[in-house]
Design a binder for these strands. Sequence first.
DNA 1: GCGATGGTTCGGTCGGGACCGAAGCGTCGC
DNA 2: GCGACGCTTCGGTCCCGACCGAACCATCGC
Lengths: 244, 244
Amino acid sequence: MIEVVAPTTVAFASANTVAEVAAAIGDPVRAAMLVALMDGRARTAGELAALGGITAQTASGHLARMVEAGLVVAEKQGRHRYVRLVDPAVATVLESLMAVAAIAPPRHRPTGPADAALREARTCWDHLAGRLGVALADALARDGRIVLADGAALVTDVGEAFFCDFGIDLGRPPASRRPLCRACLDWSERRPHLGGRLGAALLARFRELGWLVPGPRDRALRLTPRGRSGFAESFGIEVSRAPT
Amino acid sequence: MIEVVAPTTVAFASANTVAEVAAAIGDPVRAAMLVALMDGRARTAGELAALGGITAQTASGHLARMVEAGLVVAEKQGRHRYVRLVDPAVATVLESLMAVAAIAPPRHRPTGPADAALREARTCWDHLAGRLGVALADALARDGRIVLADGAALVTDVGEAFFCDFGIDLGRPPASRRPLCRACLDWSERRPHLGGRLGAALLARFRELGWLVPGPRDRALRLTPRGRSGFAESFGIEVSRAPT
DNA sequence: GCGATGGTTCGGTCGGGACCGAAGCGTCGC
DNA sequence: GCGACGCTTCGGTCCCGACCGAACCATCGC
């Protein structure tokens, strides 16, 4: 018997605070900073200022506002101040905003060469996104290693054995309540890729194997020749045009 | 063999457009309007103006901006202008914003009586959310009718038969690409409830059976005495304190 | 100690946008 | 036709916030 208990004193978010959070994202410079932080890594205030093309003092104001809104946290380390997203939920907001922005009528939207690399393969929080990420989810589902139905994702028994062979230990640490395997909507492909602990472990393993190397500054990932053959052999994924 | 094809000409969302969409949400009045539209129903411009406590001409400006940002669509009908969310993806953004707002440190956040009713049971786009929605998902999972693992949700064979008995036809209309059953994070409970086609069908059936009746203006749902016993008998859900 | 570096605070400018009053336009009811 | 109604456009006010220059504070290397 599941009982619905009386109202708790949980914090309640009214429509006003939705506006506050949205407004804190709704500035070109701040949005760029947040997107840059989506890979989960922390950056210094100076890096973020340079990224936004603004002076340090303006960036300081932006950061203060985002801290106030509960989007990022900052911790001092020596004379640097490292900033990171406060929670994966923030990355989720950004992804969903991108999805809505992608629906909107494509007005004058200049797409540069960096965009192409991002569409190809990038990190989403700590897992793999982009065309390669979607293809990976498709391949795993095709081979019965995961079930990818209706936006949901589950690891099968076959899959568990496979991932173990591939060098990923899915033994669940009791401390972590993080979902094992989450279907995360890819904003550029409009189809799901794999998130959660499995998604993170897969990306970590790919980097360990030297299949993917991170870009210098942005979230783009570069596929190495070894990765090219690796994805083909282990997952049956043929990348038609390798990004150079 | 799954092939990753060369880049398509899909519309690309840069960080700037994320800011545009977020800024279009990031005003207290506009956010309140959008939240009011989250049930998927359309409202007239005048209703939304009254809801925000502003004059008609100011509301007109807000609506124009939200249309421009691709958040809502408006269609004229006689001398009224009906406004609705452009896509469920917009509701997803709002839900995720609420989730982030709920994480943020609970500052002076006055919670009124309407909030309590909303926490109890409400519509989320077109399905059931709130404590009752979360309890329903829990109960269905406990009875093996769905599998609710790691934020994912799948209907079992047992469940399919049960839902059929309950008066819900899950035969998939080929035209609809909408997920059958989606785990939707409940912002007030921080736990998943059921969305997708199944979630929508369940709520529709509950209203058909007279178990739940919609509130006059907001998204709150009221549990009827019949619903109280119905939820107990069919799902084993005991609501400890019925909202009057 | 002293300068260099990273970051913040203060003061001031300036543009965008939220708001309303008034006027204009289309639709409905009579 | 005529007024009532729903909504938009125009013009104007006002305030918030994004930005920078300058000064200030903390830390590091020496």
